[in-house]
Write a protein that binds this DNA or RNA. Structure first.
Lengths: 141, 141
DNA sequence: CTACGTGCAAAGGTTTTGCAACATT
DNA sequence: AATGTTGCAAAACCTTTGCACGTAG
């Protein structure tokens, strides 16, 4: 395997950095290009795709029209500023006390929340012997 | 204002129908075209956009890559079958007992959930006099 | 030579917009 | 005439893929 993988390496390094969460493809692309001087969008895309397949990173959708990626770590939710788009992490699982909790944990003034559950409907669930049980794709608790 | 607005009227009628929730643009388009015999995608799109601006419908993102629309009614979440894509409503706010609750309410075998809070970060929140406090929207844009 | 990472270009899918034609007020 | 609705076509976005080149093993 070719040794020089500047793009892939840099993408991995960036993701490992705690500075930012939920990187969008463009942010990752710009950052990589900035670090290396140049880089192609598709290369960054493929690098991230590989990391995703390897289970190293998760692809998340915050509802702003672009995919975001971050290291697969502890379970947590996200909070996105409706004005500037800043995205931060909401540590732990706060599906309980919700908003108040979130405010305490992030300092954000919570104005909305969006929840989407995933599962198998009545028609799909009763399937004879599930191949291997599909775990939560997007998020799980 | 022109009286004949077949597309807009039909879109509105369809949305008023309880039969389906979270219509995707394509579903709305196909249904409208089916009812009227013909209709243009952009016309349906604009009709929905107007309804959205008027606050009659909400645009929601279930994370499946397409926008969905439904009448702005009581607060509720959604659950989407990971196999067939069927989307149904999860009545009430179940941010508390979460999964168990959802299962009881929908019959779906809940395998995942995705939560995204929206709000104003520390830098944006301290803005002079907020227009009128935004209630729990759905956040998009 | 073989395998893989990269760059370049282009394709796909969905969401938006420009513009002219039309019908009703 | 004025205005809002449509249809048709094309643009804008973001995501994804095909292909050829180049390098290290």
């Amino acid at each position: 395997m070719p040794r020089p993988s500047p793009v892939t390496d840099e993408v991995r390094r960036l993701l490992d950095t705690e500075e930012r969460h939920a990187w969008s493809m463009d942010e990752l692309f710009q950052a990589t290009r900035s670090s290396l001087g140049s880089a192609d969008y598709s290369s960054v895309f493929r690098a991230v795709s590989v990391l995703e397949k390897q289970g190293v990173v998760d692809k998340i959708d915050l509802g702003d029209g672009r995919a975001r990626f971050e290291l697969r770590e502890d379970h947590h939710e996200h909070i996105r500023c409706e004005r500037c788009g800043r995205v931060e992490e909401v540590p732990g699982c706060v599906l309980d006390d919700a908003t108040a909790q979130v405010h305490n944990l992030t300092g954000f003034k919570v104005t909305s929340h969006r929840v989407v559950f995933g599962g198998l409907c009545r028609d799909c669930a009763p399937t004879p012997t599930l191949p291997g049980e599909r775990g939560g794709q997007i998020a799980s608790t």
